[in-house]
Nucleic acid binder design. Structure first.
Lengths: 227, 227
DNA sequence: ATATCGTTCAAACGTTCGTTTGAATCGATT
DNA sequence: AATCGATTCAAACGAACGTTTGAACGATAT
Protein backbone atom coordinates (compact mmCIF):
# COMPACT_ATOMS: atom_id res chain seq x y z
CA UNK A 1 0.00 0.00 0.00
CA UNK A 2 1.32 3.37 -0.94
CA UNK A 3 2.34 5.72 1.81
CA UNK A 4 0.79 9.13 1.84
CA UNK A 5 3.26 11.63 3.11
CA UNK A 6 2.08 13.87 5.88
CA UNK A 7 2.54 17.40 4.69
CA UNK A 8 2.31 20.77 6.37
CA UNK A 9 -0.43 23.02 5.05
CA UNK A 10 0.23 24.45 1.57
CA UNK A 11 3.17 22.14 1.10
CA UNK A 12 1.83 21.10 -2.27
CA UNK A 13 1.17 24.66 -3.36
CA UNK A 14 4.61 25.95 -2.49
CA UNK A 15 6.34 22.92 -3.91
CA UNK A 16 4.55 23.49 -7.20
CA UNK A 17 5.56 27.14 -7.14
CA UNK A 18 9.19 26.29 -6.44
CA UNK A 19 9.44 23.68 -9.14
CA UNK A 20 7.55 25.86 -11.62
CA UNK A 21 9.97 28.71 -11.00
CA UNK A 22 12.88 26.42 -11.68
CA UNK A 23 11.45 24.77 -14.77
CA UNK A 24 10.10 27.97 -16.28
CA UNK A 25 13.55 29.42 -15.92
CA UNK A 26 15.31 26.46 -17.52
CA UNK A 27 12.88 25.61 -20.31
CA UNK A 28 10.49 28.53 -20.66
CA UNK A 29 6.77 28.60 -20.06
CA UNK A 30 5.50 26.80 -23.08
CA UNK A 31 8.17 24.13 -23.05
CA UNK A 32 7.36 23.25 -19.45
CA UNK A 33 4.51 20.75 -19.51
CA UNK A 34 2.19 20.04 -16.67
CA UNK A 35 3.36 16.47 -16.66
CA UNK A 36 7.03 17.19 -16.21
CA UNK A 37 6.21 19.91 -13.72
CA UNK A 38 3.99 17.78 -11.52
CA UNK A 39 6.36 14.84 -11.80
CA UNK A 40 9.32 16.97 -10.73
CA UNK A 41 7.29 18.30 -7.81
CA UNK A 42 6.11 14.80 -6.88
CA UNK A 43 2.48 15.84 -6.92
CA UNK A 44 -0.45 14.57 -8.89
CA UNK A 45 -1.04 15.84 -12.40
CA UNK A 46 -4.33 17.41 -11.39
CA UNK A 47 -2.81 19.31 -8.48
CA UNK A 48 -1.95 22.41 -10.47
CA UNK A 49 -5.46 22.80 -11.79
CA UNK A 50 -6.86 22.14 -8.36
CA UNK A 51 -4.71 24.68 -6.55
CA UNK A 52 -4.27 27.35 -9.21
CA UNK A 53 -7.01 26.78 -11.74
CA UNK A 54 -4.88 26.63 -14.86
CA UNK A 55 -1.33 26.72 -16.11
CA UNK A 56 -1.58 30.43 -16.91
CA UNK A 57 -2.79 31.18 -13.42
CA UNK A 58 0.19 29.26 -12.09
CA UNK A 59 2.54 31.45 -14.10
CA UNK A 60 0.91 34.51 -12.65
CA UNK A 61 1.17 33.11 -9.14
CA UNK A 62 4.88 32.43 -9.62
CA UNK A 63 5.46 36.08 -10.41
CA UNK A 64 3.18 37.53 -7.80
CA UNK A 65 4.77 35.57 -5.00
CA UNK A 66 8.16 37.19 -5.54
CA UNK A 67 7.46 40.49 -7.24
CA UNK A 68 5.39 42.18 -4.60
CA UNK A 69 7.96 41.78 -1.81
CA UNK A 70 10.74 42.73 -4.19
CA UNK A 71 9.19 46.01 -5.17
CA UNK A 72 8.15 46.73 -1.62
CA UNK A 73 11.75 46.35 -0.57
CA UNK A 74 12.93 48.67 -3.32
CA UNK A 75 10.44 51.31 -2.32
CA UNK A 76 11.35 50.95 1.34
CA UNK A 77 14.98 51.53 0.50
CA UNK A 78 14.09 54.61 -1.49
CA UNK A 79 11.92 55.84 1.35
CA UNK A 80 14.80 55.48 3.75
CA UNK A 81 17.16 57.35 1.47
CA UNK A 82 14.72 60.19 1.05
CA UNK A 83 14.01 60.39 4.77
CA UNK A 84 17.74 60.66 5.46
CA UNK A 85 18.15 63.34 2.81
CA UNK A 86 15.73 65.75 4.43
CA UNK A 87 14.14 66.96 1.21
CA UNK A 88 17.41 67.31 -0.69
CA UNK A 89 17.75 65.47 -3.99
CA UNK A 90 19.57 62.16 -3.74
CA UNK A 91 22.85 61.23 -5.33
CA UNK A 92 22.07 59.46 -8.62
CA UNK A 93 24.21 56.50 -7.72
CA UNK A 94 22.37 56.05 -4.45
CA UNK A 95 19.09 55.79 -6.37
CA UNK A 96 20.61 53.34 -8.80
CA UNK A 97 21.89 51.19 -5.98
CA UNK A 98 18.54 51.21 -4.26
CA UNK A 99 16.98 49.86 -7.41
CA UNK A 100 19.49 47.20 -8.36
CA UNK A 101 20.44 45.97 -4.93
CA UNK A 102 17.24 44.06 -4.34
CA UNK A 103 17.65 42.12 -7.54
CA UNK A 104 21.33 41.47 -7.04
CA UNK A 105 20.83 40.27 -3.50
CA UNK A 106 18.66 37.53 -4.91
CA UNK A 107 21.30 36.50 -7.41
CA UNK A 108 23.47 35.37 -4.54
CA UNK A 109 20.63 33.66 -2.78
CA UNK A 110 20.80 30.10 -4.04
CA UNK A 111 19.00 28.54 -1.13
CA UNK A 112 15.65 30.29 -1.29
CA UNK A 113 15.40 30.08 -5.05
CA UNK A 114 15.52 33.83 -5.47
CA UNK A 115 18.27 33.51 -8.01
CA UNK A 116 16.17 31.34 -10.22
CA UNK A 117 13.33 33.78 -10.05
CA UNK A 118 15.32 36.88 -10.75
CA UNK A 119 16.72 35.25 -13.88
CA UNK A 120 13.29 34.19 -14.94
CA UNK A 121 12.16 37.74 -14.42
CA UNK A 122 15.00 39.26 -16.39
CA UNK A 123 14.20 37.03 -19.29
CA UNK A 124 10.48 37.61 -19.24
CA UNK A 125 10.77 41.33 -19.92
CA UNK A 126 11.58 40.57 -23.50
CA UNK A 127 9.24 37.64 -23.93
CA UNK A 128 6.39 37.89 -26.37
CA UNK A 129 3.66 36.21 -24.34
CA UNK A 130 1.46 39.16 -23.74
CA UNK A 131 -0.59 38.60 -20.59
CA UNK A 132 2.57 37.92 -18.60
CA UNK A 133 4.25 41.11 -19.72
CA UNK A 134 1.15 43.10 -19.00
CA UNK A 135 1.05 41.68 -15.49
CA UNK A 136 4.68 42.49 -14.85
CA UNK A 137 4.31 46.00 -16.18
CA UNK A 138 1.35 46.50 -13.93
CA UNK A 139 3.14 45.16 -10.87
CA UNK A 140 6.15 47.34 -11.63
CA UNK A 141 4.40 50.57 -12.52
CA UNK A 142 4.23 52.17 -9.04
CA UNK A 143 7.89 51.37 -8.41
CA UNK A 144 9.19 52.77 -11.68
CA UNK A 145 7.13 55.91 -11.19
CA UNK A 146 8.68 56.54 -7.81
CA UNK A 147 12.18 56.00 -9.13
CA UNK A 148 11.50 58.16 -12.13
CA UNK A 149 10.48 60.97 -9.84
CA UNK A 150 13.60 60.52 -7.72
CA UNK A 151 15.83 60.67 -10.77
CA UNK A 152 14.08 63.79 -12.02
CA UNK A 153 14.74 65.53 -8.73
CA UNK A 154 18.34 64.35 -8.69
CA UNK A 155 18.98 65.43 -12.28
CA UNK A 156 16.87 68.53 -12.86
CA UNK A 157 18.92 69.65 -15.85
CA UNK A 158 18.74 66.39 -17.78
CA UNK A 159 15.94 66.60 -20.34
CA UNK A 160 13.13 64.29 -19.38
CA UNK A 161 13.17 62.50 -22.66
CA UNK A 162 16.84 61.74 -22.27
CA UNK A 163 16.21 60.51 -18.74
CA UNK A 164 13.51 58.14 -19.92
CA UNK A 165 15.85 56.63 -22.44
CA UNK A 166 18.64 56.25 -19.96
CA UNK A 167 16.33 54.59 -17.48
CA UNK A 168 15.33 52.30 -20.29
CA UNK A 169 18.99 51.49 -20.94
CA UNK A 170 19.72 50.97 -17.27
CA UNK A 171 16.76 48.71 -16.90
CA UNK A 172 17.91 46.75 -19.92
CA UNK A 173 21.41 46.31 -18.62
CA UNK A 174 20.11 45.07 -15.31
CA UNK A 175 17.60 42.62 -16.67
CA UNK A 176 19.99 41.28 -19.26
CA UNK A 177 22.63 40.83 -16.59
CA UNK A 178 20.19 38.98 -14.39
CA UNK A 179 18.91 36.79 -17.18
CA UNK A 180 22.09 35.94 -18.97
CA UNK A 181 24.82 35.96 -16.36
CA UNK A 182 25.52 32.30 -16.61
CA UNK A 183 23.56 31.22 -19.61
CA UNK A 184 25.25 33.39 -22.19
CA UNK A 185 28.99 33.39 -22.49
CA UNK A 186 29.32 35.46 -25.61
CA UNK A 187 32.11 37.33 -23.96
CA UNK A 188 34.19 34.68 -22.35
CA UNK A 189 36.68 35.44 -19.66
CA UNK A 190 34.76 36.14 -16.49
CA UNK A 191 35.58 33.87 -13.63
CA UNK A 192 32.52 31.73 -12.80
CA UNK A 193 32.81 32.27 -9.05
CA UNK A 194 32.67 35.97 -9.76
CA UNK A 195 29.33 35.88 -11.49
CA UNK A 196 27.31 35.19 -8.41
CA UNK A 197 29.03 37.55 -6.06
CA UNK A 198 26.25 40.04 -5.48
CA UNK A 199 28.45 42.59 -3.78
CA UNK A 200 31.06 42.71 -6.53
CA UNK A 201 28.35 42.72 -9.17
CA UNK A 202 26.65 45.66 -7.53
CA UNK A 203 29.90 47.61 -7.64
CA UNK A 204 30.49 46.85 -11.28
CA UNK A 205 26.94 47.58 -12.30
CA UNK A 206 26.65 50.74 -10.21
CA UNK A 207 29.80 52.15 -11.75
CA UNK A 208 28.67 51.34 -15.26
CA UNK A 209 25.11 52.57 -14.86
CA UNK A 210 26.00 55.76 -13.02
CA UNK A 211 28.45 56.75 -15.72
CA UNK A 212 25.87 56.00 -18.39
CA UNK A 213 23.16 57.93 -16.61
CA UNK A 214 25.38 60.98 -16.16
CA UNK A 215 26.91 60.84 -19.61
CA UNK A 216 27.31 64.02 -21.55
CA UNK A 217 24.89 64.21 -24.40
CA UNK A 218 26.37 62.71 -27.50
CA UNK A 219 28.43 64.75 -29.89
CA UNK A 220 30.91 63.43 -32.38
CA UNK A 221 33.92 65.15 -30.90
CA UNK A 222 36.96 62.94 -31.10
CA UNK A 223 35.17 60.19 -32.93
CA UNK A 224 36.52 59.42 -36.33
CA UNK A 225 33.52 59.22 -38.59
CA UNK A 226 33.15 55.94 -40.48
CA UNK A 227 31.84 56.03 -44.06
CA UNK B 1 -9.87 24.20 -61.17
CA UNK B 2 -7.44 25.75 -58.73
CA UNK B 3 -4.79 28.04 -60.11
CA UNK B 4 -1.23 27.27 -59.26
CA UNK B 5 0.75 30.43 -58.97
CA UNK B 6 3.94 30.58 -60.99
CA UNK B 7 6.75 31.32 -58.59
CA UNK B 8 10.38 32.29 -59.04
CA UNK B 9 12.86 29.76 -57.70
CA UNK B 10 13.07 29.58 -53.90
CA UNK B 11 9.97 31.69 -53.55
CA UNK B 12 8.50 29.19 -51.14
CA UNK B 13 11.68 28.96 -49.10
CA UNK B 14 12.09 32.69 -48.66
CA UNK B 15 8.43 33.23 -47.97
CA UNK B 16 8.60 30.64 -45.22
CA UNK B 17 11.68 32.33 -43.81
CA UNK B 18 10.03 35.75 -43.85
CA UNK B 19 6.86 34.59 -42.18
CA UNK B 20 8.77 32.51 -39.66
CA UNK B 21 10.86 35.51 -38.67
CA UNK B 22 7.72 37.52 -38.12
CA UNK B 23 5.81 34.88 -36.20
CA UNK B 24 8.77 33.79 -34.09
CA UNK B 25 9.18 37.40 -33.10
CA UNK B 26 5.54 37.91 -32.18
CA UNK B 27 4.75 34.61 -30.51
CA UNK B 28 8.05 32.89 -29.81
CA UNK B 29 9.33 29.64 -31.23
CA UNK B 30 7.25 27.13 -29.36
CA UNK B 31 4.04 29.08 -29.65
CA UNK B 32 4.38 29.30 -33.41
CA UNK B 33 2.90 26.14 -34.86
CA UNK B 34 3.66 24.76 -38.27
CA UNK B 35 0.04 25.12 -39.18
CA UNK B 36 -0.26 28.82 -38.47
CA UNK B 37 3.13 29.40 -40.03
CA UNK B 38 2.39 27.61 -43.29
CA UNK B 39 -1.08 29.12 -43.44
CA UNK B 40 0.31 32.64 -43.02
CA UNK B 41 2.88 31.95 -45.72
CA UNK B 42 0.25 30.44 -48.00
CA UNK B 43 2.23 27.27 -48.49
CA UNK B 44 1.39 23.67 -47.80
CA UNK B 45 1.82 22.28 -44.31
CA UNK B 46 4.47 19.86 -45.51
CA UNK B 47 6.55 22.57 -47.18
CA UNK B 48 8.64 23.35 -44.12
CA UNK B 49 9.67 19.77 -43.63
CA UNK B 50 10.36 19.41 -47.31
CA UNK B 51 12.55 22.49 -47.62
CA UNK B 52 14.19 22.61 -44.22
CA UNK B 53 13.81 19.15 -42.74
CA UNK B 54 12.26 20.10 -39.43
CA UNK B 55 10.99 23.02 -37.42
CA UNK B 56 14.26 23.28 -35.52
CA UNK B 57 16.20 23.41 -38.76
CA UNK B 58 13.92 26.22 -39.88
CA UNK B 59 14.72 28.20 -36.75
CA UNK B 60 18.39 27.75 -37.46
CA UNK B 61 17.92 28.84 -41.07
CA UNK B 62 16.10 31.98 -39.96
CA UNK B 63 19.09 33.02 -37.89
CA UNK B 64 21.75 32.02 -40.35
CA UNK B 65 20.21 34.00 -43.14
CA UNK B 66 20.59 37.30 -41.30
CA UNK B 67 23.39 36.78 -38.85
CA UNK B 68 26.22 36.03 -41.25
CA UNK B 69 25.80 39.24 -43.28
CA UNK B 70 25.28 41.25 -40.09
CA UNK B 71 28.52 40.14 -38.50
CA UNK B 72 30.37 40.45 -41.76
CA UNK B 73 29.26 44.06 -41.95
CA UNK B 74 30.37 44.71 -38.39
CA UNK B 75 33.78 43.25 -39.05
CA UNK B 76 34.11 45.21 -42.29
CA UNK B 77 33.40 48.40 -40.42
CA UNK B 78 35.99 47.53 -37.82
CA UNK B 79 38.48 46.69 -40.56
CA UNK B 80 37.91 50.04 -42.15
CA UNK B 81 38.41 51.88 -38.87
CA UNK B 82 41.62 50.04 -38.16
CA UNK B 83 42.95 50.62 -41.66
CA UNK B 84 42.30 54.36 -41.27
CA UNK B 85 43.99 54.40 -37.88
CA UNK B 86 47.32 53.12 -39.18
CA UNK B 87 48.07 50.88 -36.24
CA UNK B 88 46.99 53.35 -33.59
CA UNK B 89 44.36 52.25 -31.09
CA UNK B 90 40.84 53.36 -31.94
CA UNK B 91 38.65 55.70 -29.99
CA UNK B 92 36.40 53.57 -27.74
CA UNK B 93 33.29 55.27 -28.99
CA UNK B 94 34.21 54.52 -32.58
CA UNK B 95 34.42 50.81 -31.75
CA UNK B 96 31.12 50.97 -29.95
CA UNK B 97 29.45 52.63 -32.89
CA UNK B 98 30.87 50.09 -35.30
CA UNK B 99 29.27 47.37 -33.25
CA UNK B 100 25.87 48.87 -32.63
CA UNK B 101 25.34 50.61 -35.93
CA UNK B 102 24.61 47.47 -37.90
CA UNK B 103 21.89 46.43 -35.49
CA UNK B 104 20.38 49.87 -35.26
CA UNK B 105 20.30 50.33 -38.99
CA UNK B 106 18.04 47.31 -39.15
CA UNK B 107 15.70 48.76 -36.55
CA UNK B 108 14.77 51.48 -39.00
CA UNK B 109 14.46 49.08 -41.88
CA UNK B 110 10.81 48.11 -41.86
CA UNK B 111 10.61 47.08 -45.47
CA UNK B 112 13.16 44.29 -45.60
CA UNK B 113 12.08 42.76 -42.30
CA UNK B 114 15.38 43.50 -40.65
CA UNK B 115 13.65 45.14 -37.75
CA UNK B 116 11.68 42.05 -36.99
CA UNK B 117 14.81 39.97 -37.04
CA UNK B 118 16.90 42.21 -34.87
CA UNK B 119 14.18 42.16 -32.22
CA UNK B 120 13.93 38.43 -32.44
CA UNK B 121 17.67 38.27 -32.04
CA UNK B 122 17.73 40.56 -29.04
CA UNK B 123 15.18 38.45 -27.34
CA UNK B 124 16.80 35.14 -28.11
CA UNK B 125 19.98 35.92 -26.20
CA UNK B 126 18.16 35.38 -22.98
CA UNK B 127 16.00 32.49 -24.14
CA UNK B 128 16.42 29.10 -22.54
CA UNK B 129 16.15 26.89 -25.61
CA UNK B 130 19.65 25.61 -25.70
CA UNK B 131 20.53 24.62 -29.28
CA UNK B 132 19.50 28.05 -30.55
CA UNK B 133 21.67 29.88 -28.06
CA UNK B 134 24.60 27.63 -28.84
CA UNK B 135 24.19 28.38 -32.52
CA UNK B 136 24.07 32.12 -31.95
CA UNK B 137 27.09 32.06 -29.68
CA UNK B 138 28.96 30.12 -32.30
CA UNK B 139 27.98 32.50 -35.10
CA UNK B 140 28.94 35.47 -32.94
CA UNK B 141 32.21 34.20 -31.53
CA UNK B 142 34.61 35.49 -34.21
CA UNK B 143 32.99 38.92 -34.13
CA UNK B 144 33.10 39.35 -30.37
CA UNK B 145 36.72 38.21 -30.31
CA UNK B 146 37.71 40.87 -32.81
CA UNK B 147 35.88 43.58 -30.90
CA UNK B 148 37.30 42.39 -27.63
CA UNK B 149 40.78 42.73 -29.06
CA UNK B 150 40.00 46.21 -30.36
CA UNK B 151 38.74 47.32 -26.96
CA UNK B 152 41.79 45.91 -25.24
CA UNK B 153 44.06 47.93 -27.52
CA UNK B 154 41.97 51.04 -27.04
CA UNK B 155 41.88 50.69 -23.26
CA UNK B 156 45.21 49.16 -22.25
CA UNK B 157 44.88 50.30 -18.65
CA UNK B 158 41.44 48.85 -18.01
CA UNK B 159 41.79 45.47 -16.29
CA UNK B 160 40.68 42.74 -18.65
CA UNK B 161 38.19 41.35 -16.22
CA UNK B 162 36.54 44.73 -15.89
CA UNK B 163 36.49 45.06 -19.66
CA UNK B 164 34.76 41.71 -20.03
CA UNK B 165 32.05 42.77 -17.64
CA UNK B 166 31.55 46.08 -19.33
CA UNK B 167 31.30 44.43 -22.71
CA UNK B 168 28.73 42.14 -21.15
CA UNK B 169 26.79 45.15 -19.90
CA UNK B 170 27.03 46.92 -23.22
CA UNK B 171 25.89 43.86 -25.03
CA UNK B 172 22.98 43.56 -22.66
CA UNK B 173 21.91 47.14 -23.10
CA UNK B 174 21.95 46.77 -26.84
CA UNK B 175 20.08 43.52 -27.01
CA UNK B 176 17.48 44.64 -24.50
CA UNK B 177 16.99 47.85 -26.43
CA UNK B 178 16.53 45.94 -29.64
CA UNK B 179 14.19 43.41 -28.12
CA UNK B 180 12.04 45.59 -25.97
CA UNK B 181 11.95 48.99 -27.60
CA UNK B 182 8.29 48.84 -28.40
CA UNK B 183 7.10 45.83 -26.48
CA UNK B 184 7.97 46.98 -22.99
CA UNK B 185 6.87 50.36 -21.76
CA UNK B 186 7.93 50.09 -18.17
CA UNK B 187 9.26 53.59 -18.40
CA UNK B 188 6.59 55.53 -20.15
CA UNK B 189 7.25 58.83 -21.78
CA UNK B 190 9.27 58.19 -24.90
CA UNK B 191 7.66 59.37 -28.07
CA UNK B 192 6.78 56.39 -30.26
CA UNK B 193 8.11 58.01 -33.44
CA UNK B 194 11.41 58.39 -31.65
CA UNK B 195 11.81 54.74 -30.92
CA UNK B 196 12.52 53.70 -34.46
CA UNK B 197 14.80 56.53 -35.44
CA UNK B 198 18.03 54.64 -35.88
CA UNK B 199 20.20 57.74 -36.06
CA UNK B 200 18.88 59.28 -32.85
CA UNK B 201 18.98 55.92 -31.12
CA UNK B 202 22.61 55.46 -32.09
CA UNK B 203 23.46 58.82 -30.55
CA UNK B 204 21.68 58.02 -27.33
CA UNK B 205 23.11 54.55 -27.04
CA UNK B 206 26.63 55.58 -28.01
CA UNK B 207 26.65 58.28 -25.34
CA UNK B 208 25.34 55.91 -22.69
CA UNK B 209 27.60 53.01 -23.56
CA UNK B 210 30.74 55.06 -23.97
CA UNK B 211 30.29 56.63 -20.58
CA UNK B 212 29.66 53.23 -19.04
CA UNK B 213 32.67 51.68 -20.70
CA UNK B 214 34.97 54.47 -19.57
CA UNK B 215 33.52 54.74 -16.08
CA UNK B 216 35.88 55.10 -13.17
CA UNK B 217 36.00 51.97 -11.10
CA UNK B 218 33.40 52.06 -8.39
CA UNK B 219 34.09 53.64 -5.06
CA UNK B 220 31.54 54.91 -2.62
CA UNK B 221 32.65 58.52 -2.67
CA UNK B 222 29.71 60.86 -2.35
CA UNK B 223 27.23 58.08 -2.00
CA UNK B 224 25.27 58.07 1.19
CA UNK B 225 25.35 54.53 2.42
CA UNK B 226 21.97 52.91 3.00
CA UNK B 227 21.51 50.52 5.92
C1' DA C 1 -18.84 5.93 14.68
C1' DT C 2 -20.34 9.04 11.17
C1' DA C 3 -20.50 12.94 8.42
C1' DT C 4 -17.77 16.66 6.36
C1' DC C 5 -14.42 19.18 3.94
C1' DG C 6 -10.15 19.76 1.62
C1' DT C 7 -7.03 17.22 -0.92
C1' DT C 8 -5.01 13.51 -3.81
C1' DC C 9 -5.46 10.04 -7.13
C1' DA C 10 -5.70 7.25 -11.71
C1' DA C 11 -7.92 7.56 -15.83
C1' DA C 12 -9.79 9.59 -19.57
C1' DC C 13 -11.32 13.77 -22.39
C1' DG C 14 -10.82 16.29 -26.83
C1' DT C 15 -7.37 19.06 -29.14
C1' DT C 16 -3.23 20.25 -31.20
C1' DC C 17 1.37 19.32 -32.12
C1' DG C 18 5.48 18.05 -35.64
C1' DT C 19 6.11 14.84 -39.00
C1' DT C 20 5.30 11.37 -42.73
C1' DT C 21 3.17 9.44 -46.74
C1' DG C 22 2.00 8.67 -51.56
C1' DA C 23 -0.26 10.56 -55.16
C1' DA C 24 -0.77 14.76 -58.17
C1' DT C 25 1.40 18.42 -60.61
C1' DC C 26 4.89 21.36 -62.42
C1' DG C 27 8.81 22.78 -65.65
C1' DA C 28 12.70 21.22 -68.10
C1' DT C 29 15.05 17.58 -70.92
C1' DT C 30 15.06 14.04 -74.29
C1' DA D 1 5.06 13.42 -76.81
C1' DA D 2 7.20 10.98 -73.27
C1' DT D 3 10.14 11.09 -69.29
C1' DC D 4 12.08 12.65 -65.12
C1' DG D 5 13.39 15.19 -60.90
C1' DA D 6 11.66 18.73 -58.06
C1' DT D 7 7.89 20.51 -55.74
C1' DT D 8 3.11 20.79 -53.93
C1' DC D 9 -0.87 18.71 -52.14
C1' DA D 10 -4.58 16.45 -49.00
C1' DA D 11 -4.72 13.21 -45.62
C1' DA D 12 -3.29 10.71 -41.98
C1' DC D 13 0.18 9.27 -38.19
C1' DG D 14 1.32 8.69 -33.23
C1' DA D 15 2.56 11.49 -29.42
C1' DA D 16 2.00 15.03 -26.22
C1' DC D 17 -0.61 18.78 -24.63
C1' DG D 18 -3.89 21.19 -20.79
C1' DT D 19 -7.86 20.05 -18.54
C1' DT D 20 -11.80 17.43 -16.40
C1' DT D 21 -13.87 13.76 -13.89
C1' DG D 22 -15.46 10.97 -10.08
C1' DA D 23 -13.90 8.06 -6.80
C1' DA D 24 -10.69 7.36 -2.78
C1' DC D 25 -8.41 9.24 1.06
C1' DG D 26 -7.10 11.73 5.61
C1' DA D 27 -7.97 14.59 9.22
C1' DT D 28 -11.27 17.13 11.96
C1' DA D 29 -15.63 17.97 14.16
C1' DT D 30 -20.01 16.19 15.54
Amino acid sequence: MPLRAVRPPHETRTRILDVAEELFMHHGFEATSMRMLTAAASVNLAAVNYHFGSKDALVEAVFRRRLDPMNAERLAELDRLEADANGKPLAPQAIIRAFIRTSLKMVGDTRAGGRTFVRLLGRTYTEPAKPIRALIGQLYAPTTERFKAAFMRALPHLPREELFWRMHFMFGTLSYTLAATDTVQLIAGTKPEDRHDARALEERLAAFLTAGLLAARAENAGVKKAA
